[in-house]
């Protein structure tokens, strides 16, 4: 039983890393955006395997459905010359690689040292969505409301920033 869950887990993690690698090494922004979809889908699958269905669905809706589509639209609309993709380049590769690898080693070593026994495991048959709904309106009511204000502010802010006209365009 354990093996049955573990095999797809490793497959999806491997795929996620593979897609992330494509994002990192491709020079064409559009390829990067599509690999991002792959990464997000694999991460959503990992969430399902970790019995966090609600987070998995949120991941699909917000990232795959919203953010990536927006990104791809952005790339396609700004990409006026159709036969040429947007090419990005990277600088300071050597220094960047050293920093990234050393950071990875430190963080990886640190994670290995964490004793995960402190985190309570949930039983598998619990209804996730139901529980999240109840918790959001009792235990986590205040953060829920703060998030509402954050969203309101963000909405107002985006309308203010996008809605302003400079004097030249006004005339």
């Amino acid at each position: 039983m354990v093996v049955l869950i573990e095999i797809p887990f490793y497959i999806f993690s491997g795929l996620a890393i593979l897609f992330a690698g494509v994002i990192l090494f491709t020079k064409n922004l559009l390829y990067g955006a599509f690999s991002l979809v792959g990464t997000f889908l694999c991460v959503a699958a990992i969430y399902v395997l970790a019995q966090a269905e609600f987070v998995a669905v949120t991941q699909l809706m917000v990232y795959v459905g919203g953010i990536v589509v927006l990104l791809i639209f952005g790339v396609m609309l700004t990409n006026k010359i159709t036969d040429k993709g947007i090419i990005t380049s990277s600088y300071n590769r050597f220094l960047g690689a050293i920093i990234a690898i050393s950071l990875f080693v430190v963080l990886f070593y640190g994670i290995l040292k964490i004793n995960f026994g402190a985190v309570k495991g949930q039983s598998a048959d619990m209804n996730n969505v139901n529980q999240i709904g109840v918790e959001l309106l009792t235990e986590y009511l205040l953060p829920f409301e703060i998030a509402a204000v954050v969203l309101l502010i963000a909405l107002i802010g985006s309308s203010v920033i996008s809605g302003y006209k400079t004097k030249e365009t006004d005339e």
């Binding site: 963080l107 070593y109 640190g110 994670i111 040292k113 964490i114 004793n115 995960f116 402190a118 985190v119």
Partner: peptide
């Protein structure tokens, strides 16, 4: 990481402080 070390998010909880005291020095510091 702090949640992984302690299993709670309330920072003045006994469980939080206890978990941090028991935690390995490296992950706690990071």
């Amino acid at each position: 990481w702090l949640y992984a070390l302690t299993g709670t998010l309330t920072i003045d909880d006994v469980q939080f402080l206890d978990g941090l005291i028991k935690a390995n020095a490296l992950p706690f510091t990071l």
